[in-house]
Design a protein around this nucleic acid. Structure first.
Lengths: 147, 147
DNA sequence: TTAATTCCTATTATTATTCTAGGATTATTC
DNA sequence: GAATAATCCTAGAATAATAATAGGAATTAA
């Protein structure tokens, strides 16, 4: 199926949502692993880039864990997904950073893929963790966008 | 990278674009295979669902090949992509057709994935093969959408 | 009848994703 | 200060998805 998000990005959002729910305290991955039924080792790999891009901070040792490094209202789903999966580039031939973007000749459709990527980013960037915390907020936003 | 389109969908659009360019004559896959540098066997697999959903028609035998079954203005990129790759469902837990959509608990983000899928479909369905034939047409549409 | 093509299915090869294993480091708690 | 609980790090195995190949049957035009 086209345009799938791998579990990596999916779990990353879930993970960040759980941290957002817990506010100002450190939560261990083992807690999230057992509550969300996701392998702890996999979570460790997923949270690494989130830490490196300054979205979460970790504390080692007993009683340690992770917590958000910013207010939930300042973290978008787009930042989370791009942090763990890289930029949204539906088709290689629209990758600006790859100078040798080989594409079977005459790919007139490039514009389409570029626009798809922008549309995805627009949705992802319009939703913050605090929107997810209150379903009300999310639905309001939706109503506003659809009108 | 997230939300990627596989070569299957990419090639399908390329293929349909080539057929659209050639108008009312049958074009063989071997021609497209050599001009676009795509394996002919792979093209055969890709064009099968396109034929089954009535977007192209094939003629066997010498001088045979494929041509569009409708006017290019009546074929959208969305129809092509969904025909060869299935529906746009970024994350399993928003798949309506799968009754057992298991999702790690409390997936508040479902709304996000649903909205991403809709945004992708909106872009894909707004562009027809005849839009691709004239770059002008495509750019005009873009200007209209962005304003 | 021959050549060119679609049409069909199974299998292999390649790549990407998901998960596991094992350990090093750091902090807390007893 | 020792035990424990956690992050932090890397390599690799297992699994799944994607891309490509192979070999042929059926059909049509020349």
């Amino acid at each position: 199926m086209p345009f799938r998000l791998s579990t990596r990005g999916h779990y990353a959002v879930l993970l960040m949502y759980e941290l957002a729910r817990s506010g100002d305290s450190f939560i261990s991955l083992s807690q999230i692993s057992s509550s969300q039924k996701i392998s702890q080792g996999y979570l460790e790999q997923i949270i690494k880039p989130l830490r490196e891009s300054g979205l979460v901070k970790g504390r080692k040792g007993s009683g340690g864990g992770y917590m958000l490094a910013k207010d939930p209202s300042e973290i978008t789903v787009g930042e989370i997904v791009r942090s763990v999966e890289g930029p949204v580039i539906p088709v290689k031939c629209v990758d600006e950073s790859a100078p040798l973007h080989y594409c079977p000749d005459n790919c007139r459709a490039r514009m389409v893929w570029r626009r798809v990527g922008e549309a995805i980013d627009r949705v992802l960037d319009s939703i913050t963790l605090s929107d997810l915390l209150s379903e009300e907020g999310l639905n309001e936003k939706e109503r506003r966008n659809d009108s």
